[in-house]
Nucleic acid binder design. Sequence first.
DNA 1: GCCAACGTTGGC
DNA 2: GCCAACGTTGGC
Length: 151
Amino acid sequence: MNYWLMKSEPEECSVDDVLAAPDATVPWVGVRNYQARNFMRDGMQVGDGVLFYHSSCAEPGIVAIARVASGAYPDPTQFDPTSPYYDAKSKREEPRWLLVDVQVLKKISNITLPTLRERPELADMLVLKKGNRLSITPVEAPHWKAIVKAK
DNA sequence: GCCAACGTTGGC
DNA sequence: GCCAACGTTGGC
């Protein structure tokens, strides 16, 4: 079992949007970064733990505990010319972009970035590193436990 | 809106 | 394969 942190812009897809969806599950559309894609393709398994993170908003932070709810499969938005995620260079017979389904298990009170930074045991988390822009990062088990256990 | 950091593109 | 230019992310 592995653990991950996944960023979502709440204006795009907030934790409440996910909770309003059937089974509190959504396809994680729009990842257009190879490293993040490879984490989904090669690293994730159904049942992996996910820290659901709100980014590019007033109070960035971890807002829910979630889980990986499917294996990786092609992101349909890459083939949709009307989608902002459309990729003209991706072919159906050889999809460039993948996604997984993510299911929110429990909404938590926002653990904000400043709060995360206050905790020395979390200092090594990739999401806290300067210059980090990856929308999906692996989370080490001790970090996961430190965050989830407190809830 | 600014800007640091990083990824991608494309000329050579 | 190098690297400058450009685009994007995301906190502030």
